[in-house]
């Protein structure tokens, strides 16, 4: 039996918003440690990896490992039936073909119960190696969303350059070009861009903005985002989910042959 209780529905709602545009169906792999999900987009260019630790949830139990095949759009719709502050329980029996959702209102005077059919999903699982990155940039998640949105109006791709001066995002299109530079600023002043850069080697890589736009849907989960880059390897974009876990995205770079 698997059962996880979230003090508020909002975390699950935000996790679904952060994944549903990238992935239609995904296996939620539940174990004694917690909930994990790994899924690629249909073109296999990007990957989302979600981890929620059971011991950081309001309550959690999972005796036997279980893989729950979930249609992300259906789950999004069911979660819309919950208020943000509703205590939310998700539950599935071993060998169950449904997941049960229970939403309890703040005053405990209203309880809603929904059942969602589970699916058999045959998904390809990738082994993601532990990677030392040449550059890791921590910045405001809102700022990152803004830059991705702004440069998407110019072109389809973004060139990300990280060096000791800071990070620069650049896009070129048929009608023009744009760049946004953020200086690394160790003195934390009010109103500064407030980014930190951990750099061993300068890097310059190209990525499709279309996927970065999907990743920025995770911004409500965290005030900060971290971008990890090395030459010729996938970008990792990570949003922490409080103390509960993280959502990480990987995106294959565009490389000149």
């Amino acid at each position: 039996m698997f059962e996880a209780t979230f003090n508020q529905a909002s975390i699950l709602k935000q996790v679904l918003e952060a994944t549903k545009d990238l992935v239609n169906d995904a296996n939620w792999d539940c174990s004694a440690e917690g909930i994990a999900l790994q899924a690629m987009d249909s073109s296999h260019v990007s990957l989302v990896s979600l981890s929620l630790r059971g011991d950081e949830l309001a309550s959690y139990r999972c005796e036997n490992q279980i893989s729950l095949g979930i249609n992300m759009n259906t789950m999004t719709k069911i979660l819309k039936c919950a208020e943000n502050n509703d205590r939310t329980i998700i539950r599935a029996d071993d060998d169950a073909d449904v997941m049960v959702f229970v939403f309890e209102s703040e005053g405990r005077d209203k309880t809603s119960k929904y059942e969602m059919k589970l699916m058999d999903i045959d998904s390809e699982h990738l082994g993601i190696p532990e990677q030392e990155y040449s550059a890791t940039v921590q910045m405001s998640s809102k700022e990152f969303s803004r830059i991705v949105r702004d440069l998407s109006t110019i072109g389809e791709n973004v060139e990300i350059t990280v060096d000791k001066e800071g990070i620069t995002f650049g896009a070129k299109g048929e009608s023009g070009s744009g760049t946004v530079s953020l200086k690394s600023n160790p003195s934390v002043d009010e109103g500064s861009s407030n980014i930190t850069i951990d750099l061993t080697d300068s890097v310059k890589l190209n990525f499709a903005l279309r996927y970065l736009t999907f990743f920025t849907k995770a911004a409500p989960l965290s005030d900060n985002v971290s971008l990890s880059l090395s030459a010729d390897v996938p970008l990792m974009v990570e949003y922490a989910i409080g103390d509960v876990g993280f959502i990480r995205y990987y995106l294959a770079p565009k490389i000149d042959d």
Partner: peptide, 14 residues
Amino acid sequence: SGKQHQLSAFFGAA
């Protein structure tokens, strides 16, 4: 600019 590779070009099957 550049060719879009799939992730499997970088990560192996688990």
